[in-house]
Design a protein around this nucleic acid. Structure first.
Length: 517
RNA sequence: GGCGGCGUAGCCAAGUGGUAAGGCAGAGGUCUGCAAAACCUCCAUCACCGGUUCGACUCCGGUCGCCGCCUCCA
């Protein structure tokens, strides 16, 4: 059973979709006036993972993430840069899509633009007016907060307390300082649409109500977003929708803030790190790892140290996987008997434990811990194999790999590509023999040189190949050096390989290299 | 002032009424020609003070510290 923490009730509740077998999720997306920073990205990651997990659990899950492409901030930026609002919005919409794609997030099922939702918004506003929940004033329309008895049910604020805190000296057209605009009269030069109240544009909160209801229907399952949106944005969404007679989201999920220097990451504070900047320095997998090793509701500090740790953690998992897959490939037939079901069983146990964590309010950190536990278990098993205490069971290894890959995929963490390269079988001479079949000229000539004992020339070939990112010749030569106990030569070659960005590991099967990023 | 949340080892981070997953870093050891990697071992009593309980880190009350919202904000 999946349980989700509902901000409305402030507790975990069993997730009961409105339509059995299906799930509708709405998440507040970007206002496209700027490049998205790491903090903006957290909800996109969180709710993409939620959709992924619900699907993994067999639900037909739909994710809607809006794009606010008409708004005060966009208009202000356009004015400042002497460009049109449409141009600004277009540019940053493209950037948002490019950056989230680059992170490796699958696109939402629907990405509606506010500017495409005008008719629905106008309909909703009309309903509010005729129901007495909104009023027209100078071509703008305001929502009458005191007309909605449940106002404050999400943020747990009392209207009267709010009244005290209101610092805005009442805008001219508002009947009550708490009221908020659902439709704003157009000023000259601003983007605008025809409406029963004259030309204008949607207010700040109305688009989310219109979109959520349009694409997911009344009483949809989950509404998500950053914790900082609870008030007033989400509170207002509820008020607008439900005052119009349409039950809104039944579960509200809010992710914690990303902090930088102990403070919420925000443009106004000046402590932001752009998603694309981070992706310039770290792999998508590392960044996903960074997000998911902390529970989505907790605050998360941003720092390069944390990214580095995420990188190391991911590398550990990638190493295990690469090692396992290499062994599967090299296992002889006799070993493929499934003699060690314990590990297979362990893989299944990990899968179940992982699912339990994920079902428990999307506990990705706990779930990841299970994956690491399984990896460690597989390592111990491999160590036993290397000591000759246990026969190699390729089936069990395959089961572990399958579970790790499947669950990483469920978390939307890109699977590692195999980073292990092994020496061609045997020495350079032996490898050259094999090269006859494949027609590898370079390896053949290396073999000829080897036959003539011209090792220095071979070293030159190795250097050349290393520069091209190919360590196989170096591996083969190093095996030769080690076989002939020419350790000075072997060490020299290791230096070369290091310099070329390869980590060198000696194994019973020969020299192994790992390309270091 | 109002509302909400957090405080777990050197760092990060799960968890929980019956004596604390995992990752990073650190120490010692095994393996190795030397390394690297790996493996083994070691490293916390859960901010503080009271209370409830056979038993609390986990429940209740208080104290301190930190954070978010109350204005655009993921």
């Amino acid at each position: 059973m999946i349980r989700l923490f509902n901000s409305l009730t402030q507790q975990k509740e069993p997730f009961q979709p409105r339509d059995p077998g299906r799930a509708g999720i709405y998440c507040c997306g970007p206002t496209v006036y700027n490049l998205v920073h790491i903090g903006n990205a957290r909800p996109y990651v969180t709710f993409a993972v939620l959709r992924s997990w619900l699907r993994h659990r067999g639900l037909d899950a739909t994710l809607v993430v809006n794009i606010t492409d008409v708004d005060d901030k966009i208009i202000a930026k356009a004015a400042a840069e002497g460009r049109t609002s449409e141009k600004i919005a277009g540019q940053y919409t493209a950037a948002y899509i490019a950056d989230t794609d680059r992170l490796g997030l699958p696109r939402p099922d629907v990405e509606p633009r506010a500017t495409e939702m005008i008719p629905e918004i106008i309909d909703l506003v009309c309903t509010l007016i005729s129901g007495g929940h909104a009023y027209v004033s100078d071509g703008s329309v305001y929502f009458r907060v005191r007309s909605f008895a449940d106002y404050g049910k999400l943020s747990k604020q009392r209207i009267d307390e709010l009244e005290e805190g209101v610092r805005v000296e009442g805008e001219p057209g508002k009947a009550d300082p708490l009221d908020f605009a659902v439709w704003k009269a157009a000023k000259p030069g601003e983007p605008s649409w025809d409406s029963p109240w004259g030309r204008g544009r949607p207010g700040w909160h109305i688009e989310c109500s219109a979109m959520g209801l349009r694409y997911l229907g009344a009483g949809f399952d989950v509404h998500g977003g950053g914790r900082d949106l609870i008030f007033p944005h989400h509170e207002n969404e509820i008020a607008q929708s439900e005052a119009a007679g349409l039950p809104f989201a039944r579960v509200w999920m809010h992710n914690g803030m990303i902090r930088s220097d102990g403070e919420k990451m925000a443009k106004s504070v000046g402590n932001i790190f752009l998603l694309r900047e981070v992706l310039d320095r770290y792999e998508p997998a590392t960044v996903m790892m960074y997000f998911l090793t902390t529970h989505y509701r907790s605050p998360l500090e941003f720092s390069t140290e944390k990214l580095d740790e995420a990188q190391a953690a991911y590398q550990r998992l990638a190493d295990v996987l690469a090692d396992l897959e290499f062994r599967i490939g090299s296992a002889d037939r006799a070993a493929r008997q499934g003699e060690w079901p314990d590990l297979t069983l362990r893989a299944e146990t990990a899968r179940l434990a992982f699912a339990e964590h994920m079902d428990d309010d999307l506990n990705t950190a706990g779930a990841l811990g299970e994956l690491f536990g399984l990896a460690a278990e597989a390592r111990r098993y491999l160590a036993e194999v290397d000591r000759g205490e246990t026969p190699l069971d390729a089936e069990a290894l395959a089961a572990v790999c399958e579970v790790v890959r499947e669950l990483l995929a469920a978390l939307l963490i890109p699977a590692p590509t195999s980073s292990l390269t092994l020496t061609p079988a045997g020495s350079v001479r032996g490898a050259a023999a094999g090269a006859c079949a494949t027609g590898d000229v370079a390896l053949l000539s290396a073999g000829r040189l080897a036959a003539e004992e011209r090792w220095d020339d071979i070293a030159l070939v190795c250097e050349d190949r290393l520069a091209c990112g190919d360590a196989s010749y170096a591996c083969a030569l190093r095996d030769h050096y080690r076989a002939t106990r020419d350790f000075a030569g072997a060490d020299r070659l290791r230096e070369l390989m290091h310099a070329a960005g390869f980590e060198v590991r000696d194994t019973p099967q020969g020299t192994q290299v790992v390309k270091k990023s």
